[in-house]
Amino acid sequence: MSNITRHYAQGKDIVIIIDRNLCKGCDICVQVCTPGTLELVDAPDKWEGSVVQVKDVELCNFCRLCEIQCPDFAIRVVKKAEEEGLTMAKGKKTSAE
């Protein structure tokens, strides 16, 4: 399963991209999001124990505060046209060379 999920709003030109691998579940994004687009859910597979997910992309008002305040580069909020050129994390190398 890809760590990266993309959420397309129906009524407006908004894409929310979340990299689950980068998220550490700190809750900052959820707290800054006034419309309540995001939520924190349990993630037993991650040592932090929780991870962000999109509750309802239609609530997003494109303030992009979650993206700006995310310390982990885990959330992108962009226009559909901007989605194409974005660099994505390749995942951390774990093996020694």
Partner: peptide, 21 residues
């Protein structure tokens, strides 16, 4: 225009080492 943050980062080094938050 959206900033392509990871263009400026060594994306293969992420997630970074700092504590959650």
């Amino acid at each position: 225009m959206a900033v392509d943050y990871l263009h400026y980062l060594r994306a293969d080094k992420l997630p970074h080492m700092w504590c959650p938050g």
